[in-house]
Design a protein around this nucleic acid. Sequence first.
DNA 1: GTCTATACAGAGATAGAC
DNA 2: GTCTATCTCTGTATAGAC
Lengths: 211, 211
Amino acid sequence: MKRIDTKTRILNTAEQLFARDGFHNTSLRTLTDLANVNLAAVNYHFGSKENLLQSVIERRLIPLNQVRQEKIEAVLAAAQQQGTTPSAIDLLRAFIEPTLAFRGTDSGAKDFIALVGRALSEPDETVRNCFIQQILPLFKLLFTTLQQALPELPANILLARLQFTMGALSHVMCSSVRPLPQIPGFPEPLAGEELVEQLLTFVCTGLEASC
Amino acid sequence: MKRIDTKTRILNTAEQLFARDGFHNTSLRTLTDLANVNLAAVNYHFGSKENLLQSVIERRLIPLNQVRQEKIEAVLAAAQQQGTTPSAIDLLRAFIEPTLAFRGTDSGAKDFIALVGRALSEPDETVRNCFIQQILPLFKLLFTTLQQALPELPANILLARLQFTMGALSHVMCSSVRPLPQIPGFPEPLAGEELVEQLLTFVCTGLEASC
DNA sequence: GTCTATACAGAGATAGAC
DNA sequence: GTCTATCTCTGTATAGAC
């Protein structure tokens, strides 16, 4: 652990604590103590607590968005080659599957996904804008390709349904680190692959509903 | 404004600021200045900042849950009277429609709904537990009645889909006070009744999907 | 360049005068 | 019920050691 440099130790610890306790509820003193770095190191390396959060988000979100974009473009290319329009479920899978699969890549990734799942409802404008700025190009790509997949659906209804989809996805992302309490008499919640497939079925069916 | 008593002025102002800026990002000094009360009044009347939040939530959530419960029970009674099983869309409408309609009841109600929409993803355990405790009996009622409406659907899949539904609903609740930025080339977002109907169509179709 | 020690303003909470 | 004074802890900034 001591071999990792200060900046990375701060990023890793911040990811963990921001996800678990929230951004505003995490003090720099708790963070720097746990990371075994000096209090002032955060301001030296990142400038401020908010810049630290931005770095935490960008470190993983930029590569993740890259993967999602490539997968969407692959679906487009495959459809174009066959002379067909892309299917909604393939497009949504290209967006959702890497996001949830990302949780398994390493121990911090799960925290990160929970953090990003909360980002959309984050009240702090700086935090939310940082996230929105990162996701916007990808969201536009998903929207326009879904328009091709569902040409009969009015654009404003597609937009609304895509936001319902984001809400459901965000919720799943959050609950991976803070699961709801097991309720007596309730079934064991789904997890892993099965949860991804159920989410895809749910949002695709909803997206394709007649209006 | 000066006619309203101290406690209510604090509740109203807290509702507004917690919804707009978030709980941890709202200082008691800002809150008490805006409410025209002394700094110490919050601790005198509520004991702590967290107890204040709990009061803010309970003041409106208890009556709202009462309405939702009554509407669900009315759907059940109507079905029983006709000797049929209740329909999923009627049950979901009984849950969702009062929630979103509540936004229009007064100026603070809109803030409140945004606050509750964020509650599920709230990192602070005390806050989240307060909300979960309030919603749990209603959630159980909705779950068991939906099992009657969709008897062929496995319980764990119904539970997963109901949580997707909660995610989509939460997202809509949040965005009523902090709408996403209007994106150039994108359609005008839906609002009001139309949004409620689209959400109902979306989640009902998803809930009833074959597996 | 990197890190440590420390200073400072603002936060929530509380005791006690009125 | 209300207000002031005060306590501890927070984020931030900076001076100086290595």
